[in-house]
Simulated assay, not measured.
Amino acid sequence: MSIKESNILIKTENKVYIEIAKSVLLRERLLLENYIRKHPEFLTSYEPLEVEEDAPRVVKLMARSGENADVGPMAAVAGSISQIIVEDLSNYGCRNIISNNGGDIALRSTEDVVVGLYAGNSPLSAKVGFKIDRDRTIDGYGVCTSAGTVGHSVSFGNADAVVVFAKESSIADGAATSIGNFAVGSPEEAINRSLERAECIEGIDGVFVVVGKYAGKVGRIPKLVKTERKITYGELFEMI
């Protein structure tokens, strides 16, 4: 479903939850837009910002992620909205849901989930994925990607993909942007600088960085698996 800048792919166990997800997306976008009208710096800042205690949840999630990763709050907008969609649908009884907001994924599942890697023109793109065990997914999980060569999000690095795994997709989203900003220099330099930055950020489980045909990881990432079929953006995951 697409609403203004939001282009979200939702998978759930029952179609009735899709309509609820649309309502949640509309609500959160409206809350965020209204907040930005009163606080325009929230939209443009590349630095962390403090927000009021009574600010909307989406605003507080974004601000917390920005503070955690030392980036502006808008760096976490997609992951924060995905997280709220999954949390709200869970409150309605949905046990299996994946919300993919432009590559920033929040999910909850009673089964293992495979999330495919999309890394632009890298030869690794669509060839491997990450098998996330149900022990991680059953109470909610986040997988967010930042890239300097793919998509419209702002990144000061040249990575084809910086994939961050965390309990919360809001936290993973801000971290992915921060880590991706350090992906500069030769492929080896870009990967090493990114991984060094990742070790300074709290609240994340692991990071996988791709630059061209090279890749590196730090922390506890899910098991890498081959994806046998050619997949397109928007078909990057499945429950198994």
Rank of each mutant, 00 (worst) to 15 (best):
Arg95Gly: 08
Ile85Lys: 01
Lys223Gly: 02
Ile231Thr: 00
Val207Ala: 10
Val218Asp: 04
Glu87Asp: 15
Ile3Gln: 10
Gly180Asn: 06
Val128Leu: 14
Pro123Ser: 08
Thr110Trp: 08
Ala78Asp: 04
Gly203Pro: 01
Tyr214Ser: 12
Gly140Asn: 13
Met74Thr: 06
Pro73Glu: 11
Met239Thr: 12
Glu13Val: 11
Ala176Thr: 00
Leu224Phe: 10
Asn158Gln: 02
Leu9Met: 04
Lys223Tyr: 01
Ile105Pro: 01
Gly206Ala: 06
Ala55Leu: 03
Leu117Ser: 07
Ile84Lys: 03
Arg197Ala: 13
Ser169Gly: 02
Asp70Gln: 13
Val209Met: 07
Glu168Ile: 00
Ile240Leu: 12
Met74Ser: 01
Ala126Val: 11
Gly148Phe: 01
Tyr141Cys: 03
Gln83Thr: 13
Ile132Cys: 06
His39Phe: 12
Asn158Pro: 00
Gly212Ser: 09
Ile8Ala: 07
Glu47His: 13
Ser155Lys: 03
Lys213Arg: 14
Leu89Met: 12
Gly102Val: 03
Met74Arg: 00
Glu189Arg: 08
Ala78Gly: 06
Met1Asn: 06
Gly93Glu: 13
Ala190Gly: 15
Ile171Leu: 10
Leu236Asn: 02
Tyr233Arg: 10
Leu25Lys: 00
Ala198Asp: 06
Gly234Glu: 05
Ala21Trp: 12
Asp70Val: 03
Arg57Val: 13
Pro222Val: 07
Glu238Trp: 15
Asp112His: 11
Val207Trp: 07
Phe130Asn: 03
Ile171Pro: 00
Ala63Val: 05
Ala176Asp: 00
Ala198Gln: 12
Glu235Arg: 02
Glu228Leu: 11
Ile132His: 01
Gly219Met: 05
Asn121Lys: 13
Ile10Arg: 09
Ser23Ala: 14
Tyr214Met: 14
